[in-house]
Design a binder for these strands. Structure first.
Lengths: 338, 338
DNA sequence: AGTTGGCACTCGAAACGGACGAGTGCCAGG
DNA sequence: CCTGGCACTCGTCCGTTTCGAGTGCCAACT
């Protein structure tokens, strides 16, 4: 077990390194923090911390920098969540309240988050699988071509084209629309399939294939994963770190363009509590020197999607966590109002 | 006027510089191209070209690089549009045909364009102002709260919330929906306003304020500019150039995050023909060493939106122009089919 | 007039090398 | 267990040198 003072030394190292971005030595530490001991003692502690894998030195005769394990300990045990100032909170609220629709809420959120944290922001669209149905609309485009529009309680709209095996009349369409809505409006997506399973049977034999086609498309839309879109912003902030190596920025940019990767980054986070994944804890090369701070947000008690930021492992964790949490809360409020 | 050979020298300089990314000298030029003259002669020509402002030298005793003016001449007079290979064309077509809806078409297009050109790709959503109305749907959310859904012939869907001054019954809603659709379906957006101007008058006095509110929101949606969204991809390609200066990548990334800037970049392009804007011709600092190649695309004869790429001024213009044009054509085909 | 070879010159990039100093590990004494 | 002292390491900084690609100019040639 680490003694109280050694923990304190680790905390000091993390704080200084995050501030200066330079390896921190024993002398500088004692000068900038009241540890009550001499540099020599700190050196011993540092040697111990290094043996345990919490810190490392880039090269001999240089200062120490925290390892992923060190940051992990810092986040778990040593760091609180720094709340935002009142002014910042008001600014967030004002900015979000100007949004006109869901797209706008998401767009504003991502900009806001990038600006406040000065890092790369990720915002997942309210997930379909946790949403419920507000309305289903069917439109006739051509005789055998139908457009299906699905509206969720989070304000999201999905549309699909359906090619039916037989012509579909307006009466049939109206009938289907009415029955469909009466059955599934207000239902959660996962609950829908059993509710519509036998719906085709109640129609004329000739119409059943067409009805089945529409239903199939509907169910497909409900489970569609690819539509768990994630919006990204603040990529320019990447240039604030890595100032030496455009080489290191490359893989990060590439990773950020892969929706699948982003989904994983946010997706593995636990539902409501905040998740911090540090360095190699992200299962993706190229993100090995970045950390992800993510948290769920939602219109009510339950999280419907996630948002978060991606930054260097050497980030200001307390501040970032505070900002992420605050933004998530306000977005939740805004969504609840609409 | 420039002699034939001097033009040839300029072309050779552009080609070599684009290939090697290094200033090109007189000796190397004569070795790599059959100009039929000696380095000394080329030196004279270079001096002339420099006087005229087509090329410049980064420092004394270095080779020459083309200026913006030089690239301009190259693009206008010396370069053709290099068509893609058959294999590339087939790959494009296959990739685009897998799209399931408009969002998917756009997403695939931007990825494709970034991949083919190995640069940053921009794709503008089919513009609202050139679209026509396919259907308007009205849904009751709460007694005095209505959701308006507008569907365009390009498959795009816009939704808005409307807060009405008075409760809106289902009958009223159905009535309004029917009348609205009968008047404006199939119309171009700019033609809509006069068609609905007097619509409120034909309703009960009590209902008129609510109807007016819905109409107001509808008209607002029609003219909304901000929704001329532009999707961007391939930002990682930025790191292929600028390998020396992460300093230069910064402003570009920042500019690319501003929707307004992107709109301008694409928007000033002429309707159907291809536009190439080189270096300072882009009215935005930070994009002074980048060029934009843009072209309109559309489902029919007319362009409904633009797409293009952003790359360094030292880009392969013929190849890029060929790729951009090819992608635009195939996207147009795909849109026409759906 | 246009082209060519020769030549002196410029100047950035790369290689070299020593001084500097922050930082370390270790040890003996408090 | 803490502390001051000390020898050692090694990366960074900075001035110097070397090297060579490239240039401009000029006289000679066609």
């Amino acid at each position: 077990m680490l003694s109280e003072r050694r923990l304190e030394v680790l905390r000091a190292i993390v704080q200084d390194y995050v501030g200066t971005e330079e390896p921190v030595g024993s002398k500088a530490l004692t000068e900038r923090h009241q540890l009550g001991v001499s540099p020599a003692t700190v050196r011993n502690d540092m040697a111990f911390l290094e043996d345990e894998g919490y810190i490392a030195q880039p090269h001999t005769s240089a200062g120490r920098i925290p390892t992923d394990k060190g940051y992990r300990l810092f986040v778990d045990k040593l760091a609180g969540v720094k709340p935002l100032s009142g002014a910042e909170r008001r600014a967030i609220q004002n900015f979000l309240e100007g949004a006109v629709d869901l797209d706008d809420v998401v767009a504003r959120t991502v900009r806001l988050l990038a600006q406040v944290t000065r890092q790369v922001a990720l915002v997942q669209y309210p997930s379909l699988t946790r949403s419920s149905v507000r309305h289903v609309e069917l439109l006739s485009l051509a005789s055998a071509r139908v457009m299906l529009v699905l509206i969720t309680d989070t304000g999201r709209v999905e549309q699909r084209f359906v090619d039916c095996p037989a012509p579909v009349g307006e009466n049939l369409l109206a009938d289907l629309r009415a029955r469909l809505n009466s059955r599934i409006v207000g239902r959660r997506f996962p609950d829908v399939p059993p509710l519509v399973q036998d719906l085709a049977d109640s129609f004329e034999v000739d119409d059943r294939p067409s009805v089945a086609a529409v239903l199939a498309t509907l169910l497909e839309t409900l489970v569609e994963e690819k539509e768990e879109r994630i919006v990204l912003g603040g990529a320019a902030n990447l240039t604030r770190f890595h100032h030496d190596f455009p080489l290191t920025i490359r893989p990060v940019l590439e990773a950020l363009e892969e929706q699948m990767v982003l989904l994983k980054l946010l997706g593995e986070a636990n539902d409501s509590s905040m998740t911090v994944r540090i360095g190699h804890e992200n299962f993706h090369e190229g993100l090995n020197s970045t950390s992800v701070v993510a948290v769920g947000y939602g219109s009510g008690d339950e999280a419907v999607a996630k948002l978060g930021v991606v930054g260097p492992t050497r980030m200001d964790y307390p501040g970032t966590m505070g900002a992420v949490r605050a933004v998530a809360r306000y977005v939740g409020q805004i969504l609840a109002e609409s």
